[in-house]
């Protein structure tokens, strides 16, 4: 897996396009590619950063990022939204779960430059001021957290699940958080919290 990461950094976009352009097979299949790649080469040589606007928790944030900057890095390192965690860094554990246009997304596997114009919600935006979201309340009440490092991701997954399915079964809850991993072993408590929050939200 580390090799993948190294490759990501070693092989630049420019180098990749160049390789494609000189390949005879690629040219035969996509005859228009060489001219494109020349253009791309010239532009990517100049542009190593891009200024984008991210719509996060109801607010616009303008920032300059490299093309390789992930949404996770943008949130944590640039915008000081550190509730979203990097854990596996490979789209396995869900520690970086955020909600984009109503769907849960792994922020570590998402490039920041692809997120323009989208509605991004992070753990910091879930509560309404001092009033916690019912899912957050339920996590505290049922003790669905221990070290707490996975907790923001789980809370976001459960919140997104309940938005789409207000009355989930236990199995649907298990499925709904199956993209999140907890090392302390809070799963039974997370299930209880999700079901309690669902009930609370239906009653409210």
């Amino acid at each position: 897996m580390a090799n993948q990461k190294e490759e990501r950094h070693v092989i630049s976009r420019r180098g990749f396009l160049k390789g494609m352009g000189t390949g005879a097979v690629a040219t035969a299949i996509l005859p228009e590619l060489p001219s494109q790649s020349v253009e791309a080469e010239e532009t990517t040589q100049e542009i190593t950063e891009a200024t984008i606007t991210l719509h996060i928790n109801g607010k616009d944030h303008k920032l300059t990022v490299e093309p390789r900057t992930t949404l996770l890095s943008a949130l944590r390192d640039r915008l000081e939204l550190t509730g979203t965690k990097q854990v596996c860094d490979r789209g396995t554990c869900g520690g970086c779960t955020v909600i984009v246009d109503g769907r849960t997304v792994y922020a570590c596997m998402t490039l920041a430059i692809d997120m323009e114009g989208k509605n991004i919600r992070t753990i910091e935006g879930l509560a309404a001021g001092d009033e916690l979201h019912p899912v957050q309340e339920a996590f505290i009440e049922k003790d669905a957290l221990m070290c707490g490092f996975c907790t923001p991701g789980f809370v976001m997954s459960v919140a997104a699940l309940l938005e789409g399915n207000p009355d989930p079964s236990l199995d649907e809850v298990k499925e709904g958080v199956s993209g999140n991993m907890c090392r302390c072993g809070t799963y039974p408590r997370v299930f209880e919290a999700a079901l309690a929050a669902a009930q609370q939200m239906r009653g409210a």
Partner: peptide, 21 residues
């Protein structure tokens, strides 16, 4: 008794070493 750190941990406000800036 629910955890004293509960609110900080469910809101993302809890600062871990990894979050120090």
């Amino acid at each position: 008794v629910t955890r004293l750190s509960g609110v900080d941990k469910v809101t993302g406000r809890a600062k871990y070493t990894y979050d120090i800036r």
